[in-house]
């Protein structure tokens, strides 16, 4: 319960303030929504850091190469950030821009995934 309460509180207070702002100043409402989103995101990141450290410890014990886990972390980070940015664009009513941000995120993830793919292919060639 203690984990989720701060998020709920901030989100509810922000929602009330946002409804007032959206009527009066729509341009400030977008910035306000962005600020609240970033604040919540930073709070989530602090919790997420603990989990990721646990995962790092597990992979180190399993003897997996750290390069692969680093790639997975990078992909997760890119996915979170692009989703976040696209949502802000969509909130402001710019659906087309949000699509472009998502496309850029997909390409970035593809670029990150290429080294892993080549590693798998090389392994296959070695087996054959």
């Amino acid at each position: 319960m203690v984990e989720i309460m701060p998020f709920l509180g901030i989100a509810l207070v922000a929602t009330v303030l946002l409804t007032i702002l959206r009527m009066e100043r729509p341009e400030l409402a977008v910035l306000f929504g962005t600020a609240v989103g970033i604040l919540l995101f930073i709070m989530v990141l602090q919790r997420l850091g603990v989990v990721l450290q646990q995962f790092q410890g597990l992979t180190a014990r399993a003897g997996v190469e750290p390069f692969y886990l680093g790639t997975v972390f990078k992909v997760i980070a890119v996915a979170y950030l692009t989703g976040f940015g696209a949502q802000i664009c969509r909130d402001a009513g710019e659906g087309a821009l949000a699509m472009k941000v998502e496309l850029a995120g997909k390409v970035a993830i593809l670029i990150l995934a290429v080294p892993v793919m080549t590693a798998i292919l090389q392994l296959l060639l070695k087996v054959i």
């Binding site: 303030l17 100043r25 306000f32």
Partner: peptide
């Protein structure tokens, strides 16, 4: 900072 931004807006 949330209250600051909302305050500025209002």
């Amino acid at each position: 900072i949330i209250f600051k931004i909302a305050g500025i807006g209002i």
